[in-house]
Design a protein around this nucleic acid. Structure first.
Lengths: 132, 132
DNA sequence: CGCCCTCTTTACGTTTACGTCAACGTCAGG
DNA sequence: CCTGACGTTGACGTAAACGTAAAGAGGGCG
């Protein structure tokens, strides 16, 4: 385990372009070390990138994603921050639970239509059989 | 039940602007009747709008959403279309199931952090108590 | 009739999330 | 030393999803 990664390496692994990774850095989502001019990514950065991709799959904006993964780095020394942090977590949980509901509904509909459609298809197949 | 709606009416109900609704029409997501120049939306259009909003909450592009809600209007006469239709459904189900997984993982993490953070907070509260 | 209000089209502006050069640095291998 | 692969910083381009402003149509009502 090398524990550090080049930009191209990460790009391959997550199937994005290097441009994309640099863009995320511009937006404050990543902050790799530098070896001279070159970016050197630690496993911590890789985790963040994984979180970013997951956030994107769930339809969150890069800005929202940044706020979220920043939560993982909150310093738990100040009580006020802790409260605010818990609020943020709760807020996001609400959204996720809403999405769960949306997905469940959609899946239910899909399966209803699917079943209806399958039976229609097998019916047509039968007709073909008897037509022979 | 009036069974028909004006554009502003729908805009209020779904908390979007009329511009947005017209935009969806431009993109082929809606096709209301016209009374003279004015748009008249039937309950069918309202259902479609609801589907659009749900799709957006799940992070799908308008293009993907259009493909999906068009599925609800497929003519089940041609077998080839039926097969293709079932493929589309299956494809989308895969995505939704992937999202379910993403959400479950994220929720799990959130709750882990939340718990950790809550205990930290109550600990601090105790210190305050004893400090009095 | 005149005014107001809603709706219409047209068109240009904006933000997000990158793509696409261009021009240059750097380092290993032949 | 030269090449080629990989990396760097700008800078400009672009597609999606609307926002916004302009200018006009049409209808109800005092």
């Amino acid at each position: 385990m090398s524990d550090t990664y080049g930009i191209a390496e990460l790009a391959r692994e997550f199937d994005v372009t290097t441009r994309t990774i640099r863009f995320y850095e511009d937006k404050g989502l990543l902050a790799p070390l530098r070896k001279g001019q070159r970016r050197v990514y630690a496993s911590r950065d890789r985790v963040r990138l994984r979180l970013i991709m997951r956030g994107k799959r769930l339809g969150f904006s890069l800005d929202e994603i940044r706020q979220l993964i920043d939560l993982y780095d909150v310093d738990p020394s100040e009580v006020t921050q802790l409260r605010h942090f818990l609020d943020k977590i709760h807020e996001h949980k609400e959204i996720l639970i809403g999405q769960q509901k949306d997905i469940a509904e959609t899946l239910a509909e899909m399966e209803r239509i699917e079943a209806q459609c399958s039976s229609l298809l097998s019916e047509k197949q039968k007709k073909r059989q008897t037509a022979n």
